[in-house]
Simulated assay, not measured.
Amino acid sequence: MKTDKENFFDLVYQVVRLIPRGRATSYGAIANYLGAKSGARTVGYAMNAAHTMDDVPAHRVVNRSGMLTGKHHFSPPERMQEQLEKEGIKVENDKIMDFNKVFWDPNEELRLEL
């Protein structure tokens, strides 16, 4: 039987799989979308565990100011920046440039139209 943490991680991975190429989001935005407003750190733990999963684009999840805070979980650490740049995202000094332009907000992008 899966624990609540494992179920939450699965939900995080489902959201991360929906982030389009060339876009990025934050740990907090994912947590907020999943109804866990103070769960950014838990989303970070999920991302740390996802780096071996080929179908979860963990490189597209950064902190709220666009910093590549999870880069040390990539091997080598430069790989996170390389993957973002391959998708057309500019990174300088471990920070996404013009983060507001590439920011993907799941609350907006995945909103149900009723």
Results as ranks from 00 to 15, higher is better:
residue 82 E to Q: 15
residue 22 G to M: 09
residue 13 Y to E: 10
residue 10 D to Y: 05
residue 22 G to P: 02
residue 67 M to V: 14
residue 60 R to F: 08
residue 112 L to W: 12
residue 95 K to G: 02
residue 73 H to V: 03
residue 26 S to V: 05
residue 60 R to Q: 11
residue 83 Q to L: 15
residue 21 R to W: 00
residue 22 G to K: 00
residue 44 G to Y: 03
residue 84 L to I: 05
residue 3 T to R: 01
residue 82 E to Y: 14
residue 75 S to E: 06
residue 50 A to E: 07
residue 31 A to Q: 03
residue 16 V to L: 08
residue 66 G to V: 02
residue 76 P to F: 03
residue 53 M to Y: 12
residue 46 A to G: 12
residue 25 T to G: 07
residue 102 V to W: 06
residue 30 I to A: 06
residue 21 R to N: 15
residue 29 A to M: 01
residue 84 L to C: 02
residue 24 A to S: 14
residue 46 A to P: 02
residue 83 Q to V: 09
residue 106 P to S: 05
residue 42 T to D: 12
residue 91 V to R: 04
residue 95 K to C: 13
residue 19 I to C: 06
residue 64 R to H: 08
residue 61 V to W: 05
residue 43 V to C: 01
residue 108 E to H: 07
residue 29 A to N: 11
residue 31 A to Y: 08
residue 44 G to H: 10
residue 56 V to M: 11
residue 95 K to S: 14
residue 68 L to Y: 10
residue 46 A to N: 10
residue 39 G to F: 00
residue 75 S to G: 00
residue 97 M to S: 13
residue 37 K to C: 04
residue 27 Y to R: 14
residue 64 R to L: 04
residue 14 Q to K: 13
residue 17 R to C: 03
residue 4 D to S: 11
residue 53 M to I: 12
residue 4 D to V: 13
residue 47 M to H: 06
residue 71 K to M: 09
residue 22 G to S: 01
residue 45 Y to K: 05
residue 94 D to V: 11
residue 65 S to R: 15
residue 109 E to K: 09
residue 20 P to Y: 07
residue 49 A to W: 02
residue 66 G to M: 02
residue 54 D to F: 08
residue 80 M to P: 02
residue 65 S to N: 13
residue 14 Q to R: 12
residue 22 G to D: 00
residue 95 K to E: 11
residue 63 N to S: 09
residue 53 M to N: 09
residue 28 G to D: 11
residue 101 K to T: 06
residue 55 D to L: 01
residue 40 A to M: 14
residue 108 E to I: 13
residue 57 P to S: 01
residue 107 N to A: 13
residue 93 N to G: 08
residue 48 N to E: 14
residue 57 P to I: 08
residue 3 T to G: 09
residue 102 V to D: 03
residue 102 V to A: 04
residue 106 P to A: 06
residue 106 P to C: 09
residue 99 F to C: 02
residue 97 M to Y: 08
residue 105 D to I: 05
residue 76 P to M: 02
residue 70 G to T: 11
residue 11 L to H: 15
